[in-house]
């Protein structure tokens, strides 16, 4: 049940799905780094990045609309940045009367605001297309191959594995609580304090279950020869065509970024 919400991978047979996870990861991060380096008002570069990202999304056949819908995830943060429209000095463009205060939007403020929004929007789409076309365990392997410390890779794998189990347990706990509190008093209420306390107990219960599960897992690991050292198979060498794709992609990204600074 939790897995329908938590699963982000979308199965497919596209060349984007088939691309080596290491190449995908490096290219995705490079794209986001490039976007974050762009100065305000680099519309041409942003347009080029967006075109690249959309081409990738279309090639992956996961559906542009789906990605765009999921990309709304960063929306709440706009409330924070919208303030710079009125605070960056520049030529007044329009005013917003708000009772006692009148806010004046400036051209420089608008320029910076739209740059940030666009950068953020492109970056989120890049991250989305990466997770939609790459199994998370492949991302983890790629991180290991790129020398993330072993212990972090191991922790992330355990976390990913038990995300689904514990999210299910959390939902069961919530449902049980809601049944009980509805039975206790028709409004499903109690004071806020009481509700907070019950929720804290649920958190405690979940914590205990997780703790006990980790001990059982530890025993299961011991039983299969774990002695404290984690081993993994060596990563396979990069396929030359994947390598070429990665280098080509990185070159294009660097050129786009350079254009924004030089052009």
């Amino acid at each position: 049940m939790a897995q329908q919400i938590l699963e982000r991978y979308i199965d497919g047979a596209s060349s984007i799905h088939a691309l080596d996870a290491r190449v995908k990861l490096v290219l995705a991060v490079t794209t986001i780094v490039c976007a974050s380096l762009l100065p305000a008002g680099s519309w041409l570069a942003l347009l080029a990045l967006t075109a690249l990202v959309w081409a990738t999304i279309i090639a992956s056949s996961v559906g542009l609309l789906l990605i765009l819908r999921r990309a709304l995830v960063a929306l709440p943060f706009l409330a924070v940045v919208v303030t710079i429209v009125f605070s960056v000095p520049g030529q007044p463009v329009f005013t917003v009367p708000l009772g006692f205060v009148t806010l004046t939007a400036t051209d420089a403020g608008l320029l910076r605001f739209f740059t940030i929004v666009w950068k953020s929007w492109v970056s989120v789409q890049v991250a989305l297309i990466l997770t939609a076309t790459t199994h998370f365990f492949d991302i983890l392997r790629a991180l290991g191959a790129l020398h993330l410390p072993k212990i972090m890779v191991a922790l992330l794998s355990f976390m990913y594995r038990y995300l689904f189990v514990l999210a299910d347990e959390a939902q069961q706990l919530l449902r049980a609580r809601d049944c009980r509190s509805a039975a206790l008093d028709g409004r499903g209420g109690g004071s806020v304090w009481w509700r907070a306390k019950v929720t804290g107990q649920l958190v405690g219960t979940l914590f205990l279950r997780a703790f006990e599960r980790s001990e059982r897992i530890y025993v299961a690991m011991l039983a299969r020869g774990y002695t404290g050292e984690l081993r993994s198979l060596n990563a396979r060498p990069l396929h030359p065509s994947d390598l070429r794709f990665g280098l080509g992609g990185a070159l294009v990204l660097v050129l786009i970024t350079l254009q924004a600074f030089l052009g």
Binding site: V165, V219, A223, R224, G225, Y226
Partner: peptide, 28 residues
């Protein structure tokens, strides 16, 4: 001795079937 626990969610602690079945041989 191969010990299999009651709850497969305790026994299968790796992200994929391959990783899990490979765990024992790797650690041997």
């Amino acid at each position: 001795v191969g010990l299999v626990f009651q709850d497969p969610d305790d026994q299968l602690f790796s992200p994929t079937v391959f990783d899990d079945v490979a765990f024992g041989p790797l650690h041997m």
